[in-house]
Computed example of a mutant assay.
Amino acid sequence: MTTQVLICDDSAMARKQMARSLPPEWDVELSFAADGREGLEAIREGRGEIVFLDLNMPEMDGYQVLTQVQQQDLPAVIIVVSGDIQAKAHERVKSLGAIDFIQKPVKPEAIRAILLNYGILEPATTEQEPAAPPPLTDTSMIKVDLRDACQEVANIAMGQAADLLAKLLDVFVKLPIPNVNVLETSELTMALKAVESDSKASALCQGFIAAGVAGEALLMFYDGSFEDMARLMRIDDPLDPDTEIEVLMDTGNVLIGAFLRGVFEQLHMNFSQSHPVVLGRHCDLSELIKDKIHKWQRTLAIEINYQIESYNIRCDLLLLFTEDSIPTMNYKLSYLLD
């Protein structure tokens, strides 16, 4: 009997990877949704007996979808598939009715194990002749571009960095959808000015380099965040003038290091980092980074805003890849872009 399977994820790359990773012998009819609202509508229409659900999505996120499915008692068995690997994320989705959790990037063996464990997929028997696998939805119809692929790579790396920070501080890190764009440096400066508020920020930067890829990672820590972060880090005197530098360096060490490792592991590349340098303290964002980008014409920019739940802590991680890095990034991701 054919099973109605829904893959709900805002990333075309993630939808394609998930579809390719399903057991080939599983008789399914696949549907896709690019955000939570589309996904919920597909479930209501009966196209989601089994749902593979992302958490970080526009319009309606995975937590909201789970809540609506639970409140409306919709007939859907939901497996969360996410780059947010924090223990508290696992706990929350289970409490909202998800039967299990799969970590991105997905592995076919992990999917098969869960489907077998819950009796969704029947185990193969040696006595039977293997049936020819039914054709799945043609994934060549799912088009993935550089921006989408980079966003999904960043999403996974972001989750790994957040998980490390969450474990160190015993907190829950609220994760956004990564913002990825190829920009002229003048456009980047204008974009930063557009999001500037009354809050000033302090920042550090760290250069990184790999074969054919180079850039700068910048961590911008907003004023008002230092005192809470110092207390979470158990720093003796959170009001000491040197505490801000200590907080900035320690947070940068966690978030920048873990994020870059996550990115380059997915690209199967070795990389190295320079020593972190404090760019400035209590300044406007555009002022903090203008000296770093004026020498570039274009940049591949990845921006992530980290917030810690229940605390007044907010920081931005900004990765700026040089224009010369873009062809290498395209090449490394090309197997996902067909």
Rank of each mutant, 00 (worst) to 15 (best):
Glu59Ile: 13
Ile50Gln: 00
Gly46Pro: 09
Gly39Tyr: 09
Ile43Ser: 02
Arg44Phe: 10
Gln68Asp: 10
Ala12Arg: 00
Asp35Thr: 10
Glu41Ala: 13
Phe52Val: 06
Leu30Asn: 00
Glu29Thr: 12
Ala42Pro: 01
Ser31Glu: 10
Ala14Asn: 06
Arg47Ser: 13
Ile50Glu: 01
Glu38Ile: 03
Leu74Asn: 05
Val51Trp: 01
Gly48Phe: 08
Ala76Gln: 04
Arg47Glu: 11
Gln64Ile: 07
Ala33Ser: 11
Val69Asn: 02
Ala12Gly: 00
Val77Tyr: 08
Leu22Thr: 00
Gly48Val: 09
Phe32Val: 00
Phe32Ile: 07
Gln71Thr: 10
Ser11Trp: 00
Ala76His: 02
Leu66Glu: 01
Glu38Pro: 06
Asp61Val: 09
Asn56Cys: 11
Gln17Trp: 13
Ser11His: 03
Gln64Gly: 09
Phe52Gln: 07
Asn56Glu: 15
Ala42Phe: 07
Glu25His: 13
Leu74Tyr: 05
Ile43Ala: 04
Ile43His: 02
Glu49Asn: 13
Ala19Met: 12
Pro24Met: 13
Gln72Asp: 14
Val65His: 01
Val69Ala: 00
Glu45Thr: 08
Arg47Phe: 12
Leu30Asp: 08
Met57Gly: 05
Gln68Arg: 14
Ala42Asp: 06
Leu74Trp: 12
Asn56Leu: 12
Pro58Ser: 12
Arg44Gly: 04
Leu55His: 07
Val69Thr: 05
Glu59Arg: 14
Gln70Pro: 04
Gln64Tyr: 08
Ala42Asn: 04
Glu59Thr: 11
Phe52Cys: 05
Val65Thr: 09
Met57Ser: 06
Arg44Tyr: 04
Ser21Cys: 13
Ala19Val: 09
Leu74Arg: 04
Ala34Met: 14
Ala14Pro: 02
Thr67Tyr: 07
Ile50Pro: 01
Pro23Lys: 11
Glu45His: 15
Glu49Pro: 01
Gly48Lys: 08
Ala76Ile: 02
Gly62Trp: 02
Gln72Val: 04
Glu45Leu: 15
Met13Glu: 01
Val28Leu: 10
Glu38Cys: 07
Leu66Ser: 06
Ser31Leu: 05
Arg44Ala: 11
Val51Arg: 00
Ile50Arg: 04
Val51Asp: 03
Ala76Tyr: 02
Arg15Tyr: 03
Leu66Met: 10
Arg37Pro: 00
Ser31Asn: 14
Leu53Ala: 09
Gln17Gly: 11
Val77His: 14
Gln71Ala: 15
Glu41Ser: 13
Met13Tyr: 03
Leu55Cys: 09
Asp61His: 13
Ser11Tyr: 02
Ser21Lys: 05
Phe32Lys: 05
Gly46Tyr: 05
Glu38Arg: 11
Ala33His: 03
Pro23Arg: 11
Leu55Trp: 05
Leu53Gln: 06
Gln68His: 15
Ala76Ser: 13
Glu45Arg: 15
Val69Ile: 14
Gln17Val: 06
